[in-house]
């Protein structure tokens, strides 16, 4: 069976695959899907991990395969590529807004001092009340991609999506 769906349709289809740890985001919003192409009769989807040890990659790969299998009889291959390395700059504006609404402060855009030994403390807005007075509790949070903050105004703890 030959697919009647275009590559563009497949990109659209993959927006139904959610990140298992942040279910408001899909893998296209996240910038995890890097390429989709036909290689003879094999549909090749290239994905990239957010962090080297991201434990969600196997599930994401499985979910991509299963949704494509629902629409195709063909072979689907999900490949992983490390280069160019994933960056939070690939998160779409839409994804940032979804994160904020979900209670996770989105990463800052394109900060230039990512490699500095001691980064200046950034102003991270509380995603719950919008206050700018927040404190970093720990640079490591509930998943590799998040840091742990608390709001000094509404006193709620929250996650900040780390900028890498």
């Amino acid at each position: 069976m030959t697919s009647t769906l275009s590559i563009e349709d497949i990109w659209k289809l993959l927006t139904e695959v959610k990140d298992p740890e942040i279910p408001v985001l899909n893998v296209v919003d996240m910038g995890i899907v890097r390429n989709i192409q036909w290689n003879d009769d094999v549909l090749e989807v290239t994905i990239t991990p957010t962090y080297s040890g991201c434990p969600a990659m196997d599930v994401i790969s499985l979910n991509i395969k299963s949704i494509l299998h629902k629409h195709f009889a063909e072979n689907v291959a999900v490949k992983s590529a490390l280069f160019p390395p994933w960056t939070t700059d690939w998160l779409t504006d839409d994804a940032r807004e979804k994160l904020r609404n979900y209670g996770i402060a989105p990463p800052e855009k394109g900060t230039s001092d990512k490699s500095a030994l001691f980064a200046e403390q950034k102003v991270i807005e509380c995603p719950k009340c919008g206050a700018k007075e927040t404190t970093k509790v720990s640079e490591f949070g509930s998943t590799s991609c998040k840091a742990h903050y608390k709001c000094n105004v509404c006193l709620e703890p929250f996650d900040y999506f780390k900028c890498i």
Binding site: P49, F83, P85, K114, S115, I164
Partner: peptide, 10 residues
């Protein structure tokens, strides 16, 4: 190079 570029961020 790919592994290094990935790892350096972490």
């Amino acid at each position: 190079v790919a592994i290094a570029a990935k790892s350096i961020k972490e």
